[in-house]
Simulated assay, not measured.
Amino acid sequence: MLNENKIEYSKEHEIFLKNVKKRKALIIFTQILILVLFFAQWEITARLKIIDPFLVSQPTRMIKFLIKLYQNGELFRHIFVTCYETIIGFVLGTLIGTIFAVILWWWDFLSKVLEPYLVVLNALPKIALGPIIIFWVGNGRPAIIIIALMISLIVTIISVHAGFKEVDEDKIKLLKTFGATKFQILRYVVLPSSVPTIISALKINVGLSWVGVIVGEFLVAKEGLGFLIVFGGQVAQLDMVMLSIIILSIAAYIMYILVASLENKFLGWKN
């Protein structure tokens, strides 16, 4: 007897699936190859003095400094501090921003009143508020998290609220015809239809949260990757600076992948 759970494909379909897998593997291989070639030419040109390793460092020198940080017990401490601040700022910015967007959708009058203020706050460089925030909450981790929160908050409110307003009005009218409450409309139509917008806001917030945290660490931190970048620049240790930037890039990419992995789950809710 044939296994009922076994799915049989036609030869054409199997060939198509194989081609898709080969294409994905080729893309990943090419991406890795580009990365390897980039670091290889960086190392070679630095060794041949085509570029000045003092100004741009080189991979082997960064690896030596990485080992030194690890042996001193400072590597994971600095990474943890920056990642912790970024995750807190990211989560708070997303949650608070989405809640505010729901309030603005729920109360259209308030949305109209606050619209010009949101536009001004979105255009305002949040970094300019850094000294004020430090004066208000002190020279420490809370100031860094608040700066990260402010940078992502307004963008989240505006983008998610715009997604709410783009929901098909016919669907909303249909639910109203059947006597649905505003909460039911929000739950069964507005939020599921706005999943792509919310996911896009999450992806944008990943980058904005890292920017906010690094800016905050530039201003007040005594630990973290942002602190290493500033300190390395002050003492002319470009190995420290370049290594911190590379670690930041890796951490930001991992966080982006984790957020993107949520997309399929939420799209299932939408469908």
Rank of each mutant, 00 (worst) to 15 (best):
P116D: 13
F54H: 11
K6Y: 05
V220E: 03
K173F: 00
A46T: 12
Y70H: 12
A25R: 15
A236T: 13
I144M: 00
P196G: 08
P59K: 13
D168T: 12
Y84V: 13
K182S: 06
T197L: 01
L35N: 12
I185V: 08
A46G: 06
G212C: 05
K18Y: 02
T30F: 07
L191D: 07
G216D: 14
W107Q: 14
I28F: 03
M1C: 03
E8P: 00
T45C: 00
I144Y: 08
M242F: 08
V195Y: 12
I204C: 02
Y256V: 04
T86W: 03
N264G: 07
E85D: 09
A123C: 11
V235R: 10
P192R: 14
V195P: 05
T86K: 01
L114P: 04
I151K: 09
E14M: 05
K165R: 15
M240P: 02
L121S: 08
L262F: 06
S152K: 06
L175I: 10
A162E: 15
A101T: 11
D170F: 06
E14R: 11
S193E: 15
P59G: 09
L26C: 03
L75R: 04
V235A: 02
K182A: 02
S209M: 05
F38N: 05
W105Y: 10
A46K: 07
E263H: 04
S200Y: 14
I134G: 02
I145M: 06
F183L: 14
A221P: 05
N5K: 12
S261M: 07
H161N: 13
F178K: 14
F39D: 02
L110Q: 05
S209D: 02
K126W: 08
G232I: 02
P192C: 05
K165T: 07
N5H: 10
L186C: 06
P59F: 03
L238E: 10
H161T: 07
I144T: 04
I146C: 01
T82P: 00
F109R: 15
L174H: 11
A46I: 03
F100K: 11
W269D: 02
Q234C: 01
V36K: 02
V102L: 13
K265Y: 15
V241S: 07
L129K: 10
K270E: 09
P116A: 09
F38I: 15
G268V: 08
A221L: 10
P53W: 02
K18V: 01
I99H: 00
K270Q: 13
